[in-house]
């Protein structure tokens, strides 16, 4: 077995094992860290396939940005950090489906590409950039647009609505808040009644 195939096999083994741990780990932070390993081995497989630019883009975007985002997500949702059951009652169905899917995909791959070989070559960032800005310019612009839209969309979704979540501290801004929301003149709030703003977060 030649060297590139050994490298690819090692990426397969490491990446596969890490991904299995991602979906089985009982500790959510561990799962996120195994995801780092899996994505790094994906980047490594890009390198063995000669797609250098993609490999580094993968490392930067996924291992860098996405993992940090996911860790933030875990933190903000106060996921219980520590071992606990993370699976639902669909687990058996999921396992059957996944095994069947893997068998199917592998079978199709062997049937279709069993005899194919890849002549290794290296694609530099310059080459990719050239086609990207000449031949693929329009989809590239659309992608940029999509990223902008998703950024705005994520902001809109995650933004706290007025009156939602914890109320702001009364302080120097009290006057402004009072000006924005004129106090009710004839309906006094019932003491001890539910405050709509607090109810949601405190459940």
């Amino acid at each position: 077995m030649a060297a590139p195939e050994l490298f690819m096999l090692s990426a397969l083994v490491v990446g596969g094992a890490a991904s299995l741990l991602v979906v089985t780990a009982r500790n959510v932070v561990h799962a996120a860290l195994f995801l780092v390993v899996a994505l790094v081995s994906v980047a490594a497989s890009f390198l063995w396939l000669g797609a250098e630019f993609l490999a580094w883009a993968q490392v930067l975007v996924y291992v860098g940005a996405v993992i940090v985002l996911i860790l933030f997500g875990l933190m903000l949702t106060r996921a219980p950090i520590g071992p606990m059951a993370q699976h639902n009652e669909n687990r058996k169905l999921a396992a059957i489906v996944a095994v069947a899917l893997f068998a199917l995909l592998t079978g199709l791959n062997v049937a279709s590409f069993g005899g194919e070989t890849i002549e290794l070559r290296t694609t530099g960032a310059g080459q990719l950039g050239e086609v990207l800005y000449l031949q693929w310019a329009f989809p590239f612009v659309v992608l940029g647009f999509l990223l902008t839209v998703s950024l705005i969309g994520a902001l809109v979704l995650a933004r706290r609505e007025e009156g939602e979540g914890p109320l702001p501290d009364p302080g120097p801004h009290e006057e402004i808040a009072a000006a924005r929301e004129p106090a009710p003149t004839d309906a006094t709030p019932i003491p001890g009644g539910p405050t709509p703003g607090r109810e949601i977060g405190s459940r």
């Binding site: 397969l12 596969g16 991904s19 489906v97 996944a98 899917l101 893997f102 995909l105």
Partner: peptide
Amino acid sequence: FAALLFSVGVY
């Protein structure tokens, strides 16, 4: 490798 990652992801 891709098939394995995909199936595990589905699971």
